[in-house]
């Protein structure tokens, strides 16, 4: 299957800032990729280049087989900018009717689009009176116009409440099932973990990691933490068995080991039987994995 989006060795610099350095990636139809990275990592810059809004200095970008920003690419790509804005004097419905007309669709679909993002009640109110989350929903609604083959969403869930976030990802699931490729950026790791196929981590303009969360977890090989609660009276004996452990004020003994040592260590603890009251195995958190990759080149 030919990829919807192909980026190879993309380089972009703004005067003194090198915003993107030799970034390469591909996105197949129906796949959802999440772009993560610190503030100023280059996420928005990459998206604007994919949309043809700003030129780039080196490398190649192909969007649905066309040049970014070309007429044929624009027909097939929908975009949600970060901090999306609309003219405050128009109502949500009028704004969407306008966007529908610009895409050559029937403007009467505006009502249905607004109901898909839960804005039916405010359709006839001016956007100037909308809350931030409501404006964000208008932004989402306009990305659903037509049948885009590529969705580029810059922090799409910013400003959305938790329930709306879930509804939003449900909407994305439907679109990707129909073959739309989705590239989104986010700072919320938990939602990205559950609702996307692939994670891309940008750091200082470089693509430092790419893969499913499971891939990244393995590659990071971060230590697994154990938290052991000794049975009453056994604290000292436990500490003697595991001299590498750290005894906390809360009476818990904390141990850590590599992925490969996890099962042997578990067996050793289990062998102590009644000396152990309770045991928790804490895998590296998303934040741990993310910071491992994101900070790799000394941020």
């Amino acid at each position: 299957m030919t990829p919807t989006l192909t980026i190879s060795r993309l380089t972009k610099r703004f005067q003194s800032v090198e915003a993107l350095k030799q970034v390469s990636l591909t996105l197949a139809p129906g796949k959802r990729a999440a772009l993560l990275g610190h503030n100023g990592a280059g996420k928005s810059t990459m998206m604007k280049i994919v949309l043809g809004l700003i030129p780039f200095d080196g490398g190649e970008v192909s969007v649905c087989g066309a040049h970014p920003g070309s007429a044929s690419a624009r027909v097939q790509v929908a975009y949600l900018p970060e901090n999306v804005a609309f003219h405050p004097a128009l109502t949500g419905e009028e704004q969407l009717r306008h966007y529908l007309a610009l895409r050559g669709e029937n403007p009467s679909q505006a009502t249905e689009l607004l109901s898909r993002v839960g804005l039916t009640h405010a359709a006839r109110r001016r956007i100037g009176t909308y809350s931030k989350g409501m404006r964000q929903r208008v932004g989402l609604a306009q990305t659903l116009i037509g049948r885009p083959r590529l969705l580029v969403l810059d922090e799409p869930t910013s400003g959305l409440d938790p329930v709306s976030r879930r509804d939003f990802y449900d909407l994305l699931d439907g679109l990707s099932a129909e073959g739309t490729a989705i590239l989104l950026s986010s700072h919320v790791l938990t939602e990205v973990e559950a609702r996307t196929d692939r994670i891309l981590i940008l750091s200082g303009g470089e693509l430092v990691a790419e893969g499913t969360l499971a891939d990244l977890r393995t590659r990071a090989a971060l230590p697994v933490a154990f938290s052991v609660r000794p049975a009453p009276g056994h604290a000292a004996s436990l500490a003697a068995v595991f001299p590498e452990g750290v005894q906390g004020d809360d009476g818990l003994l904390r141990l850590s080991c590599s992925q490969a040592e996890k099962l042997p260590l578990l067996a050793r603890i289990a062998a102590l039987e009644s000396a152990v009251a309770d045991l928790d195995v804490i895998p590296p958190s998303l934040e741990d994995i993310y910071s491992h990759f994101s900070r790799r080149d000394g941020q």
Binding site: K48, V75, P81, V84, A85, P88, G139
Partner: peptide
């Protein structure tokens, strides 16, 4: 100034 231009320019309109 309003920030409406980037989105508009991604539409298939010259």
């Amino acid at each position: 100034e309003r920030g409406t231009l980037p989105l508009l320019l991604t539409y298939p309109v010259s």
